[in-house]
Simulated assay, not measured.
Amino acid sequence: MVGGPVVYGFLRLVRVSEARQEALVASLAEYCRSHELELSGVFTDREASAGPGSVAFAGLLDVLSLPDVYGVLAPAASHLGPKAIATERGRRIEAVGSRLLLVRRSRPACPPIVSSTAAHHHSLGTTRLLDAES
Rank of each mutant, 00 (worst) to 15 (best):
D45E: 14
L101S: 03
V7C: 08
V16I: 10
D45Q: 02
A23V: 10
L13T: 10
S17A: 10
V69D: 00
V55E: 15
G9F: 02
V14C: 05
V14T: 14
R91C: 11
R12F: 01
K83A: 15
S78M: 07
V72N: 01
S27G: 06
P108H: 13
A23H: 13
T117H: 09
G59R: 07
F57K: 07
E22D: 14
A86K: 00
G9A: 10
P108Q: 12
E36F: 13
R107W: 14
A56V: 08
S98D: 00
L64S: 05
R15G: 12
T87A: 11
R105Q: 12
A76P: 03
V42F: 09
L37Q: 00
R91P: 00
C110K: 14
A29I: 02
C32N: 02
C110V: 14
A23G: 13
S40P: 02
A86T: 03
L37W: 00
L28Y: 04
G71C: 03
V69R: 11
V6Q: 07
P52Q: 04
A19E: 14
A77G: 03
R33H: 06
P111Y: 10
V63P: 00
V69L: 04
R89W: 02
L73Y: 09
F57P: 01
V69K: 12
V63T: 12
D68A: 07
A77I: 12
Y70Q: 06
A56C: 09
R20W: 05
A58D: 15
Y8E: 04
E30R: 15
A58E: 15
A84Q: 10
V25P: 04
S34Q: 15
G97E: 00
A95R: 04
R89A: 00
L61G: 06
L37K: 09
L64T: 01
E18C: 10
H35V: 07
G53N: 04
S106P: 11
C32L: 05
S27C: 07
L80R: 00
T117L: 14
Y31F: 14
R33Q: 11
H35M: 11
